[in-house]
């Protein structure tokens, strides 16, 4: 079978196209999306420079890059099906023969593609303005970055099924999750490892979030001045791959379960009768 006639790939590509087109069709979105992550990372960089080690400024810039993706996962992945449900798109998905995992994967890839320009802008601006000292090992950076995004977006897929089940207040849940997850994942500072300000129990709990492992792995691969790494880089890469796989399978099963439950209870569409 030719690749382009594979329904799974066709669906995934179409969903990717919709997501990316929404962003690239309006180039100003990139400028708008870059604002908050950039200014936040700028502020934290200034905190590092004003009160401590300017060498740590790179933590905050990397944080600005990754927070763009985390925001995208939360607002455009986790709660997307919930919004699709409100406008009647979700029932179109379900009543079509399209595999729901293809829609999720397409949505993720489209999200990554759509977020990449603003994340890149944060990185470029940060590095141009602050020039933090880094010694990257690029093959490791690329591998770890890809695995981090894979596990992060797989988490988004898993969250999307949770939101479908309990997501009447999707916006509020997003607002409530955004900052705490950024905090324990150590988006702007190492929350795990030798220089983490957190006690061991908190670090252990934080390690269950893919973003935590991903941030630590990225800091290691970029050659930031970290005194003690959390765990060796190759183990973190393995953990990330495993997390991505588990979350992908979990989300697929959860969505199948919720689809069946929704058909039983009548909750696939918002309209009840």
């Amino acid at each position: 079978m030719k690749l382009h006639s594979n329904p799974w790939l066709r669906t995934a590509y179409a969903r990717l196209w919709v997501r990316a087109k929404s962003i690239y069709g309006e180039p100003l979105w990139v400028a708008v999306n870059v604002g908050f992550p950039f200014f936040t990372s700028f502020s934290f960089t200034m905190v590092y420079r004003a009160y401590g080690l300017g060498a740590y400024a790179g933590f905050a810039i990397l944080g600005g890059v990754m927070i763009s993706f985390w925001g995208n996962v939360l607002w455009s992945m986790a709660s997307q099906f919930n919004w699709d449900k409100q406008v009647g798109l979700f029932e179109i998905y379900i009543s079509s023969p399209a595999p729901i995992t293809a829609i999720l994967v397409g949505m993720s890839l489209g999200g990554i593609l759509g977020t990449a320009p603003s994340a890149a802008m944060v990185a470029i601006l940060g590095w141009v303005i602050f020039a933090p000292p880094i010694h990257p090992f690029w093959p490791a950076v690329v591998l770890v970055f890809s695995l981090t995004l894979a596990s992060l977006y797989a988490m988004g897929m898993a969250l999307s099924s949770l939101y479908l089940a309990y997501g009447r207040e999707a916006d509020s849940v997003n607002e409530a999750l955004h900052e705490p997850v950024s905090l324990i994942s150590g988006v702007y500072f190492p929350s795990v490892g030798g220089i983490s300000p957190f006690p061991f129990a908190v670090q252990a709990a934080a390690s269950l979030v893919p973003l935590t492992i991903g941030m630590d792995a990225l800091r290691q691969s970029l050659g930031f001045p970290i005194k003690v790494a959390f765990i060796p880089l190759y183990i973190e890469a393995l953990i990330l791959a495993l997390m991505a796989l588990i979350l992908l399978l979990a989300s697929s099963r959860a969505l199948r379960f919720l689809e069946n439950k929704g058909r039983r209870t009548g909750s696939i569409a918002v309209r009840q009768r």
């Binding site: 934290f44 905190v47 590092y48 009160y51 401590g52 080690l53 740590y56 933590f59 905050a60 207040e169 509020s172 849940v173 607002e175 409530a176 955004h178 900052e179 705490p180 950024s182 905090l183 988006v187 702007y188 500072f189 190492p190 929350s191 220089i195 983490s196 300000p197 957190f198 005194k227």
Partner: peptide
């Protein structure tokens, strides 16, 4: 739900300071 976000934001900013200033 409304408080957890601001609380985490405050702790994150303070942690950034703590990590940076402790190292220095």
């Amino acid at each position: 739900m409304r408080t957890v976000g601001p609380l985490a934001g405050v702790i994150a900013a303070s942690s950034v300071y703590f990590v940076g200033s402790s190292a220095a």
